[in-house]
Design a protein around this nucleic acid. Structure first.
Lengths: 144, 144
DNA sequence: CTCATTATTAGTAATCATTCCTATCATTGG
DNA sequence: CCAATGATAGGAATGATTACTAATAATGAG
């Protein structure tokens, strides 16, 4: 039985607020990985008074609760409501970011066979390259 | 035959300057992965007039020439003079970053067996966890 | 339901990394 | 040695993120 957002907040001493709810909703419905400012802009359609500070503070809270994940790309943070293990494909020509479910990657962990005193809690694997649209654009430019 | 720094710059239309040289030297001698500001502070011991803008500009040039690598961590960029393929271990309690040579990781690529139209040029694998010092500190705090 | 407690908010100011701008300087090829 | 032009110093501008504070609102107890 999965605990709801409300009780999940309460049991940690957090309160349920419209702002908090709206930020999480926005992130869950988003078709790409949003920045704090993008979330701010989006949520203002419903809560015109919300402030950017509130967005940042709540993203921290949601991250604490492991309801969202945070990662950095090109100098800024982006947030992801998909907390399942997965990887990212970053296009180096545009801002597109695609997801790869972990299941498509085969068993990587079994190959992490080093000796280290570091205690590893998680790892992150990012791929960089060119998305289909940019491959096409560049091919067109070659020709011209 | 490996081309020297000087001719490597010239053949691309870049010039060899003291600042450029000093920045690369500093990075090659560093015992950890420096930020632009750390490099700025270090190089100022020899070139007190150097400006932060020059450091940033030259780091970009050196990255273009693939003499250094750039990566982001906790919202800021760090630079690495080791351009061999390797991975990083980030301690989540302190700022320590350790390197893992790629050879210690076994053959990962053979397990990247997905279907994708993305054209992948490189990937980055980061590990997060606790360094030995922080493991000890935390154990001590438990006891207290 | 009402009230007091206290987390949360809006709004703004402050920080800080990074980038941009421009007049001056320095390296290089000829 | 000299002109062409890349590079620099210094400072201003930008933009993301964080910090601060008085006012607001969610919560739980009664």
């Amino acid at each position: 039985m999965k605990k709801g957002f409300h009780s999940q907040l309460n049991s940690r001493g957090y309160r349920l607020t419209q702002q908090r709810q709206a930020i999480l909703n926005e992130l869950r419905q988003a078709d790409h990985h949003l920045t704090a400012r993008e979330i701010y802009t989006a949520v203002r359609r419903y809560l015109p008074q919300i402030s950017l500070g509130t967005v940042y503070r709540n993203l921290d809270v949601l991250e604490q609760l492991v309801l969202i994940k945070k990662f950095e790309h090109r100098g800024l943070f982006r947030y992801d409501a998909d907390i399942q293990d997965h990887y990212h494909l970053f296009c180096q020509y545009c801002d597109r970011i695609e997801d790869i479910p972990k299941s498509q990657l085969g068993d990587l962990e079994s190959h992490f066979n080093w000796e280290t005193d570091f205690q590893i809690s998680h790892y992150q694997l990012d791929f960089h390259g060119s998305c289909v649209a940019c491959q096409k654009n560049r091919a067109d430019q070659e020709r011209a």
